[in-house]
Design a binder for these strands. Sequence first.
RNA 1: GGCCCUAUCGUCUAGCUGGUUAGGACACGGCCCUCUCAAGGCCGGUGCACGGGUUCGAGUCCCGUUAGGGCUACCA
Length: 437
Amino acid sequence: MLHIGGARTALFNWLYARHTGGKFILRIEDTDQARNTQEAVDVIFRGMRWLGLDWDEGPDGKGGTAGDRGPYFQSQRADIYRSYLEKLKATGRTYEDGGALKFKMPKTPGVVRDLVCGEVTFDRTMEPDLVVQRKDGSPVFHFVNVVDDLEMGITHVIRGEDHLTNTHKHIALYEALGAAPPQFAHIPLILNRGGSKMSKRDEGAALGFYEEAGYLPAALRNYLCLLGWSPGENQEILPIAELIQRFDLPHINRSNARFDGDKLFWMNGEYWRSLSEAEFRKFADDYLQRTRPKISQMDPALLQRLLPLIREKVRTGREMAEWLDPYLGSEYDYSDEAKKKQLNTPEAAKWLNSLSTAFGALAGTWDDAAVEGACKKVAEEAGAKPAKVIHLVRAAVSGRTVGPSLFGLLTALGRETTLARLERTQKELAAGRLVAA
RNA sequence: GGCCCUAUCGUCUAGCUGGUUAGGACACGGCCCUCUCAAGGCCGGUGCACGGGUUCGAGUCCCGUUAGGGCUACCA
């Protein structure tokens, strides 16, 4: 999976590169053989693309490569690591211990000049030496990381704060190799609701979770920016161009931030409503195609009538799909609440009867006003408030107690379908199948 | 345990070099609107972790305590 924290780190790097006119490089650190699968790499490509983070150098995700400092997979850079290992050995600052190769850590204070954290000094008098090559001959992460950043001409490393205390070791390695270290910026971590580091097992820890739930990438991207960074001036909803223009390192916070799903949900709603009709249609088509295979059997015209009504009531793709479910076929379930509150009432059968008659009499015109008139007439004759009748109709035609505004819904469904659905409910009711569990 | 980082409403944050009725957003509560649900409008409560300093004056600077997080692998 692509971890939400990793995605946020990638986003900050991307924003910084775009803000400064630099290059954003994607490198796949696939040295863990057990977890290194094509599938795992594809998840990264997909997630990056979904979030809109295009990279200037790295694997293109289709088997090709962009940039001339590759290969961009660590698993393919063994020769490079070997030669750097020789280079390091030649400095005389390494020694063998138990079959492994160790780098002698300097005993001088380790100073990290960080673009976010400022100057942080580590006392190394007690610092153990660093293993750079394992007994089995493979180089360790800290070493390959330094080599790759060096070889790839990396100027800025923006990474999670969990690396801050390792950075002085990296700097020591750069110095031993006679190279100037890049600039570092350590950004605060994303915490779960409980306040500890977001782990794989936390709900919403995977970027894919948001795609599946039908969130808008732009909304998540915007939300993620605000975790540990603020443009000030009380602005929160920022279009991507403005994000790029305003993003900078000095305004990054030093303290960790909890992930607040509620706020993301709200923000998604903001983006959801600001989508143009065409954008929304494209999103809805894609999402429904993927999550509701049955959609292809639905009358496209009906779908197009329903979608705008549903859109204004919900804020994610998943909600949209669920609201659409009752209309995907002629079969639909009745919720317990609908049964209990609306259908299982003394007057339900009688009212449904009147409604069928009233709607049936609407021969020529079938629009919001006509439907509303019919509902009100039935309510008046029954001596009830229109709301009561309206709720009953919604339950009867959708099996739900919540849904789009009723008159618009019935108009969208059409007279025939509405009547068929009323009839279905009447039959179910008569057969005693609408008793709440 | 050692080392490093952090500490403003429940949450995300604004608060640049000390003087604010400590601002915004989410969430929450109330009211309005209302056919449910949303959306929208109005109103509201809640906060500078604690203790010492420095100073005429501290959310802002210093120290300590406490709390949280991270690192401390022949993991990445």
